[in-house]
Design a protein around this nucleic acid. Structure first.
Lengths: 230, 230
DNA sequence: CCATCGGTTTGATTTAGGTCAATTTTAGGT
DNA sequence: ACCTAAAATTGACCTAAATCAAACCGATGG
């Protein structure tokens, strides 16, 4: 994807004039990260924020024993670390590229100035932060109040809604990340995820072939995602 | 606390002129909730947001089986539900008064207009949302990566830092909520919290007398909060 | 074509923490 | 001060999920 296209479909910059987009592009720097590169670390000074142009970035926390909790996976057109610029002076988590990734980097100073001068961008930023907040509320809910099967089912429902195609057997789609990364996003480990997938498969609710998932019984999957016991 | 004082110490309105504060007060409505009253429910249409003048409000989620996860407890001078106005059309959680509570209520329409017209308020709002976001990151981290003892220890450390007074034995303070509410804030249940407190007491790290806590070994408590096993 | 190295699956076992039930303590209302 | 109801504690038990260990893919590069 080219830079201008990515900026234009980024919610943070929506509703802006072309000349404003150009101005924005001017204060940014393009950066490239090979797969598996650290973009920043927890507690590092937050000197800027990022827009993903291509590739994927995971934002995550680590426990002292090394267990990983993915907070979010950022796709092209999405921003990350913007909140770190406005509260505290450090990044609150780690960021690492999941694939070869291109980003635009906006240094704190010039970006904050931009926001100050541009009321539309302030409102976009408020909307974007509010959206993030709702996602986190939902993540907390899932981690605290739902079991692994329910979290997995919810994830499959969401993914099928956004990228599923219906076939003869049911709704079909591909997992967009590895299963161990998925485990870490669901707040569990690969072994447990593997067993949860197997349970769904044994009950003929889904089919699994590598990364390809077919949902055979959408209603059953939804019930499980709502916490009706397996 | 009187209304103007509460507004003035509310971060959302900081840096505003007195006449602006007056204007803000004009679009708000004062409401009163006896202890234990529902202020709004999850999925209810978000028609406005709130500033707490006096009392306390808990924001929480419920599982289908009725387990409660407190997301935040709001104290005087703090706002809540502001994000709901800018993303989606419903409240993402429940809100209930923990004590006799006075709030100012701002209808969505007029508040959004206010924000649009007032760049300083936009920036305050961005700061406030960013701050919430950081808190949620930390909540997710604790729920997913730390055990109950670590979460409890962290909570006690935080509370002692903001309201502790040092005595001969150690740092002394009072829990600001009931233990069952604390359990629900830590993502556990009262029985488990009770046992976690007992373990700390048995090891002479803290003393507990009702709501009064004395931290005897701050360093040990900190280690536990960081996840060094008990 | 084979060796290799993640990622994945499976089984056996352990454990933190939730559930259930009974008791004790505390706090608010009259 | 007393009575009741809610909150807190304790014990016995159970379960979901983590841990440990081993085997099993499937892609990648020599």
């Amino acid at each position: 994807m080219d830079i201008e296209a990515a900026l234009k479909r980024c919610p943070l910059f929506s509703g802006l004039e072309d000349r404003e987009i150009t101005e924005i592009e001017a204060i940014s720097a393009s950066k490239r990260y090979p797969k598996g590169t650290s973009i920043f670390s927890e507690d590092q000074e937050a000197k800027g924020f990022f827009v993903v142009i291509s590739g994927r970035v995971k934002i995550y926390k680590l426990s002292p024993e090394g267990k990983e909790q993915i907070l979010h996976i950022i796709s092209p057109g999405q921003t990350f670390a913007e909140a770190a610029l406005f509260d505290g002076s450090t990044y609150p988590a780690f960021a690492e590229s999941l694939a070869e990734t291109r980003v635009l980097y906006f240094p704190k100073e010039s970006f904050v100035n931009l926001i100050r001068k541009n009321p539309q961008m302030s409102l976009n930023m408020i909307a974007s932060l509010s959206h993030w907040l709702r996602e986190f509320v939902s993540l907390v809910e899932e981690l605290s109040l739902k079991d692994v099967s329910a979290r997995l089912s919810q994830y499959l429902m969401d993914l099928s809604a956004q990228s599923g195609r219906s076939s003869e057997r049911g709704i079909e789609f591909k997992l967009d990340i590895s299963k161990s990364q998925l485990a870490s996003q669901l707040g569990t480990i690969s072994e447990t995820l593997s067993r949860a997938l197997r349970k769904l498969r044994d009950r003929r609710i889904i089919e699994v072939e590598g990364k390809k998932i077919t949902i055979l019984q959408k209603d059953a999957l939804e019930e499980i995602s709502l916490g009706i016991p397996l």
